[in-house]
Design a protein around this nucleic acid. Sequence first.
DNA 1: CGCAAAATTGAACCCAATCAATGTTCGTGG
DNA 2: CCACGAACATTGATTGGGTTCAATTTTGCG
Lengths: 232, 232
Amino acid sequence: MMRDSEREVIRTLALFKEIADVEFERLIEGAFLQRFPMHVVLINEGEHPDFLHVVVEGTVELFARYEARETTIEILQPVTTFILAAIVRDDVYLKSARTLAPSRILMIPAANVREIFGRDPVFARAVVDELAIRYRRLVRTLKDQKLRTGVERLANWILEADRQQGGSGRIALPYEKRTLSALLGMTPENLSRTLASLSAHGISGNGREIVISDRGALVSCARPDPLIDGPE
Amino acid sequence: MMRDSEREVIRTLALFKEIADVEFERLIEGAFLQRFPMHVVLINEGEHPDFLHVVVEGTVELFARYEARETTIEILQPVTTFILAAIVRDDVYLKSARTLAPSRILMIPAANVREIFGRDPVFARAVVDELAIRYRRLVRTLKDQKLRTGVERLANWILEADRQQGGSGRIALPYEKRTLSALLGMTPENLSRTLASLSAHGISGNGREIVISDRGALVSCARPDPLIDGPE
DNA sequence: CGCAAAATTGAACCCAATCAATGTTCGTGG
DNA sequence: CCACGAACATTGATTGGGTTCAATTTTGCG
């Protein structure tokens, strides 16, 4: 099901790093690594969880629908697990998931997760850490959403993206702009305009690239806050 | 520090219900139950966590600031714990907390929580459950915020409040309207208008009371969704 | 009572959504 | 490899939901 190299990568995840080999082997027994094309729905909100998912390669978007509307909750890059909370609670998904790029997803049977969790305190500790991190990330997202304007959200997203990409000041958009707009809680049209308006605040760039030409100006526009934009 | 009756109430919390007496006693060793007047700040975002808090009586608001703005994240009624995630991560608070009513708060030393957590699998399991529940609640909040208009958020809040108060169709506002407006992500002025506009959709009431006069009309306006408004 | 804070109401304004049209990108198949 | 088409992105015009500012009324509490 998995090459050794892949197994090693997954092993380095905080969620699995500390557990004993025996437990790890038991955990991924019956797991399988599957390749998916772009724009494939992996999970539908409302369904029941059978597997813990791990993005091994590619990009996964967590999104949600209501009536005819749709919004992005989070975008996951390798290597990350998702829908852990639904498995722990053994309750329906609150979010859907789809690939934004050709991806490889590891699917670990939910029963395994619960079994190891119930028996291995080390793994239990890791699950708690993971959930707490996720919780705090979501708090940051909600603050970002409720306390900032569209311009501020975008400006801070750019700063964060730059940081993640090495801080060179040249950012390659990791996904489509329509996706980014949904993530930031605005329409594609509005993102377009907002981005254009930031050219007066230290931003230039075209197409799939954004360039920070005047970081000071951008920062004074974004006013980043460690309690919203922090790394974790 | 605590009366037996209070101890019993806390013991019934999901977080503590299953653990052994010995562990529970150890957990609340050095804990203290304190009375606070209305509008007292218990926690400031950015500070470091020393205690796990439990609302034993009264009401606590979790809120956050950014620049000159402020918003409500969650409002807690007895009996509920809060800031568990910060303790687990041993990292600064992302939210502040204040009392909205005269309250009694149980404060359990963070060190105790970590100690028992590291030793008692039953408690570890409870912590995971608690975090997963909180996480899912926050997902619902974020969906509510990003996918609904102000009218819809208010209408659904009314339905939920009615449910919690027994479904009689008469709802007593549990806190000030300015607080509700912050919780719903709008200004007090806007809440006023929105509430007035709902009188055309099955709502009447004055002052601190809201009456559902036509539930069908309200529901068709609110369009509740089990994946947003669910109980948990 | 009487004051201070909260709530309501009105008017003007602004940010963002919608509708509509055009330009651009990118993946696909010939 | 190029041409084509569909989806994405941009731009403009308009609408609308929500905020802000301001003034008044009501509530709650000492």
